[in-house]
Simulated scan of single mutants.
Amino acid sequence: MIAAIGILVGVILGIVVDINIPEKLSPYMSVAILACLDSVFGAFRANLSNNFQANIFISGFFGNAILAAALAYLGDKLGIPIYIAAVIVFGGRIFDNFAIIRRLVIEKIRSR
Rank of each mutant, 00 (worst) to 15 (best):
R103E: 14
I88W: 00
V89D: 04
M29H: 13
S111D: 00
I101M: 11
V9N: 02
P27V: 13
I19S: 05
P27T: 13
L74I: 08
I58V: 15
L13S: 06
I80P: 02
I84Y: 03
A72S: 14
S39Q: 15
V17G: 04
L37P: 01
S59K: 14
L13C: 09
F41A: 11
F95G: 04
A68W: 03
A54E: 04
I56Y: 10
L78K: 10
A46H: 05
C36R: 01
P81T: 01
M1A: 12
F44K: 00
V31T: 02
F44P: 00
F57D: 11
F41M: 13
S26P: 07
A69W: 02
F61Y: 05
N47K: 12
I100P: 01
P27E: 12
G79C: 08
A70V: 01
G6I: 12
I58C: 13
S26D: 14
D96K: 14
P27C: 14
A85F: 08
V89F: 12
I84W: 03
I5C: 07
I88G: 01
S59Q: 14
A43L: 07
G91H: 05
Y73M: 15
Y73D: 07
R112P: 02
R45Q: 08
I94Y: 02
E107I: 11
G60D: 11
I33H: 01
